[in-house]
Amino acid sequence: MNKIKQLSFVMMMGVAVVSMQGCSPEVGTKAWCEELKEKPKGDWTANEAKDFAKHCIF
């Protein structure tokens, strides 16, 4: 029974993570550019910086 509870917990956490990912705007959209402008530049990933330059500046 304990293993069933553990498996259920892991599955619920997976669903929660997937659900939260759906809340982010698509890369390159105006909403994404605005969201990234609000985020401290020190917290940007290399991919975010590259995508920001590609989609929001040029």
Rank of each mutant, 00 (worst) to 15 (best):
M1T: 09
M1P: 06
M1D: 09
M1V: 07
N2S: 12
N2T: 11
N2R: 13
N2E: 15
K3P: 03
K3V: 10
K3D: 14
K3A: 11
I4Q: 10
I4F: 14
I4H: 07
I4N: 08
K5Y: 13
K5V: 15
K5F: 11
K5S: 09
Q6S: 13
L7C: 08
L7V: 09
L7K: 13
S8R: 12
F9V: 14
V10H: 09
M11C: 10
M12N: 09
M12G: 05
M13I: 12
M13K: 08
G14W: 03
G14K: 01
G14A: 07
V15K: 01
V15N: 02
A16D: 01
V17M: 07
V17R: 01
V17W: 05
V17Q: 05
V18A: 15
V18W: 09
V18T: 09
V18I: 15
S19H: 02
S19R: 00
M20P: 04
Q21L: 10
Q21N: 12
Q21W: 08
G22M: 09
G22Q: 11
C23T: 13
C23W: 10
S24Q: 14
S24D: 11
P25E: 01
P25R: 02
P25V: 03
E26A: 12
E26F: 08
E26M: 10
V27H: 02
V27M: 06
V27G: 04
V27T: 13
V27D: 04
V27Q: 05
T29W: 03
T29H: 00
K30D: 13
A31G: 07
A31C: 06
W32V: 03
W32G: 02
W32P: 03
W32D: 02
W32E: 03
W32H: 00
W32I: 00
W32K: 02
C33P: 02
C33H: 00
C33G: 01
C33N: 02
E34F: 06
E34W: 06
E35T: 13
L36S: 04
L36G: 07
K37G: 04
K37D: 15
K37E: 15
E38V: 10
K39L: 06
P40Y: 05
P40R: 01
P40F: 01
P40K: 04
K41D: 07
K41A: 13
K41G: 10
K41E: 14
G42F: 03
G42A: 06
G42I: 05
D43N: 12
D43L: 15
D43F: 08
W44R: 02
W44T: 01
T45E: 01
T45G: 05
T45R: 02
A46E: 13
A46I: 08
N47W: 13
E48M: 05
E48W: 04
E48K: 00
E48F: 00
A49K: 15
A49M: 08
A49N: 11
A49R: 15
K50P: 04
K50G: 05
K50C: 07
K50R: 13
K50Q: 11
D51N: 15
D51H: 11
D51I: 04
A53G: 08
K54T: 15
K54A: 13
K54P: 06
H55S: 09
I57D: 06
I57C: 00
F58I: 08
